[in-house]
């Protein structure tokens, strides 16, 4: 059985905002029956057409697909369209206390539906990663089984810092059926990694306290947590006092016999990318 968090369970047992909006301003549809999951998102805007006042969904899919849809609609209510577009799939998963990695594609589906809905409303080019819909394609189809383009896959790889083909399958389904595109997925990972390394920030010479705290958070988000997710673990930043960083381990990391090593790994990363004098302490939080 999947190790769903209580929050995931609560959201598929009692999903919020199920249904449709007859006079919706924006509707985004992704997925299909054949794929095994599909999401239709309805958005209602305020009179100034700026802020989302209501959101509803219809979803065909497993427990985590329902929970992700429910979470998404809760998260976007009250946000402007631009704010809503900032929501990443990881934030949808975080809202639910995490998803099993094999189920991350459910959170990606939520993010996709939102992008499609807003793009259609604004009349711009419609993101074309969504499976089998009749939009014009941008980029080259990599996964024929699920109809996914290289542009979409590269975006998900970069955003979630994926580094194995298996992770890409868990996040997007690509390569999960016939497996024919796995070599191509590996090429895309290498491409994205190459691009990222060129941009990789060097440790700054001098830091204000504020900048240091920001940087610590960025490194944890972008460099540390994705690596823990790969092993089913996670951490939460509890406090920063000067150079002393307090973290609490979550999911598989919590109570893991090697959490001491993991804490040292976090410290090493922060020393490498933020400042030499950082210390990391694990706390129960």
């Amino acid at each position: 059985m999947w190790d769903y968090t209580d929050k995931v369970k609560e959201h598929f047992m009692n999903p919020r905002n199920v249904g449709d909006i007859a006079d919706a301003d924006a509707v985004g549809e992704v997925g299909s029956l054949a794929c095994g999951d599909a999401l239709k998102l309805f958005i209602k805007l305020d009179e100034q057409k700026e802020r989302i006042v209501d959101a509803k969904f219809q979803t065909f899919g497993c427990g985590s697909a329902i929970a992700s849809s429910s979470a998404l609609t809760e998260m976007i209510k009250g946000k402007t369209l631009d704010e809503a577009l900032q929501i990443t799939n990881q934030e949808i998963a975080d809202f639910l206390g995490g998803l099993p990695e094999e189920k991350m594609h459910c959170s990606v589906m939520g993010q996709e539906a939102l992008e499609v809905a807003i793009a259609k409303y604004r009349g711009g080019p419609i993101p074309t990663h969504d499976h089998g819909h009749e939009h014009e394609q941008e980029g080259e189809i990599v996964c024929k089984c699920f109809g996914l383009t290289d542009g979409f896959l590269k975006k998900v790889i970069a955003q979630n810092r994926l580094h194995t083909a298996e992770q890409v399958t868990h996040f997007t389904k690509a390569g999960g059926a016939c497996g024919g595109c796995i070599p191509k997925i590996k090429e895309l990972i290498a491409e994205v990694l190459g691009e990222q390394q060129q941009r990789e920030p060097k440790r700054p010479e001098r830091l204000t306290n504020l900048r240091k705290m920001q940087l610590i958070q960025e490194v944890l988000e972008n460099d540390v947590r994705p690596q823990l997710w790969a092993d089913g673990g996670d951490l939460e930043l509890i406090d920063i006092a000067g150079s002393a960083v307090q973290i609490a381990f979550r999911k598989a990391c919590a109570g893991c016999a090697s959490s001491g090593y993991t804490a040292r790994f976090v410290e090493q990363k922060l020393r490498e990318l933020v400042a030499e004098d950082i210390t990391v302490e694990e706390v129960q939080g």
């Binding site: 598929f12 047992m13 095994g36 065909f60 899919g61 497993c62 427990g63 189920k103």
Partner: peptide, 23 residues
């Protein structure tokens, strides 16, 4: 309807079955 969802709802009632679904 997706099979895993059916199983999860059945499971809430203590009913144990299995599914041919992908998920």
């Amino acid at each position: 309807v997706e099979g895993e969802l059916i199983l999860l709802y059945l499971s809430e009632l203590g009913i144990c079955a299995s599914s041919g679904s992908a998920c």
